[in-house]
């Protein structure tokens, strides 16, 4: 068996899949549409990851290096797959570079797209400069610049983080929970408090979903150690009085509407299906599930199976997913790919 396995996408899931396969002596062709590996944590400039607390550049950077250094992995950057024909054991992938790859199996690790906050205009992103996203705050932190109001570079004294931006919102057809934003927001809140001890940070929520062990490390810690304030209120609108941002909410405990001034408002943006999923669904001939993510055909028998035999899926391509779980899924899908190649021999 000399045909390589095709891994599509060089984020945490794809890097894990490629590494596992190469470690077992399998050849891998890793196709990445961007000009560098690492996926969202690297491309979007994340700071410290949840829950490890390691810097993205170190943690994911290490995974990238491992793949880049491997002789078994043929990395094709700035490349996409335009068509995938054939069956298990004998797939042919046409690449945007004009090359063709003959592969025994395919693992799709095509990831997600950050929710674009302009789709929620009443929360002021795109209208007011000091309304930013969690991704932008990650970049402010990871670049070493620190958290500053984009309008005039001042240090904010009051920051509001709005949860569920682009998640759990039927108004805009995004009914899913993006899973990671509560913990990421608590993490960012602590980072802001650490950098700017005079800055008050408020998190406006409908539910807090710092699931599992994240409860102590983020939910409690952010309150007990960092005095981050949690207010149960979904914000209605973000406007400006020309000097500060004005946030309209309800104090649900006293049942009164409130209007609160802030220097900076942070949207905890959710995870959308990859904007290319319709194209991907056609070129790979795999089904999408109703929300627009890639459908998992089987939860228990063949981990990572899609609607097409020999094509597997892992990570946030299948729905909102954490980095840790994406890595685990990448390894699991790699194992499923090996199993299926073995079975067709």
């Amino acid at each position: 068996m000399t045909k390589p396995i095709l891994v599509v996408g060089g984020g945490p899931a794809g890097l894990a899949a490629a590494h596992s396969l190469s470690a077992l002596g399998k050849k891998v062709v890793l196709v990445e549409k961007e000009d560098k590996l690492g996926g969202a944590p690297i491309l979007s400039g994340y700071a410290k990851l949840v829950p490890s607390g390691e810097w993205a550049k170190d943690a994911i950077g290490g995974m990238v290096k491992r793949v880049e250094d491997s002789k078994m992995i043929d990395v094709r950057l700035s490349t996409t797959v335009s068509e995938l024909s054939g069956d298990t054991g004998n797939f042919t992938a046409k690449l945007s570079s004009g090359d063709e790859v003959n592969a025994a199996a395919t693992v799709m690790c095509t990831g997600f797209t950050h929710f674009d906050s302009v789709n929620k205009p009443e929360w002021g992103f795109g209208t007011h400069q000091d309304v930013v996203t969690t991704t932008q705050v990650e970049q402010m932190i990871s670049s070493g610049k620190g958290v500053r109001c984009p309008s005039d570079d001042r240090k904010p004294k009051r920051v509001a983080i709005l949860l569920c931006v682009g998640s759990r919102d039927r108004q805009i057809g995004r009914e899913w929970c993006s899973k990671i934003c509560c913990s990421v927001s608590a993490n960012i809140a602590m980072e802001i408090r650490e950098e700017l001890p005079d800055c008050h940070v408020y998190i406006y929520y409908m539910d807090i979903r710092t699931f599992g062990l994240l409860e102590t490390k983020y939910y409690w810690k952010s309150q007990e150690e960092f005095k981050v304030k949690y207010i149960k209120a979904r914000i209605a609108e973000v406007t400006s009085n020309g000097e500060q941002l004005i946030v309209k909410g309800e104090d649900t405990l006293v049942k009164r509407p409130i209007t609160i001034p802030f220097d900076m408002v942070v949207h905890a943006v959710g995870m959308d299906p990859n904007v290319d999923n319709r194209v991907l669904s056609e070129s790979f001939d795999v089904d999408l599930e109703p929300h627009g993510f890639i459908d998992r055909a089987d939860s228990y028998g063949v981990v990572g199976a899609t609607s097409r035999d020999g094509v597997f899926v892992a990570g946030s391509a299948t729905g909102p997913e954490t980095i840790d779980d994406s890595i685990a899924q990448g390894k699991a899908a790699a194992m499923s790919a090996l199993e299926c190649i073995q079975a067709t021999k």
Binding site: K48, A56, S142, S143, G144, E191, E194, E195
Partner: peptide
């Protein structure tokens, strides 16, 4: 803000 562990990306 992040003390000794912090590294510039």
């Amino acid at each position: 803000g992040h003390g000794a562990e912090w590294r510039d990306s």
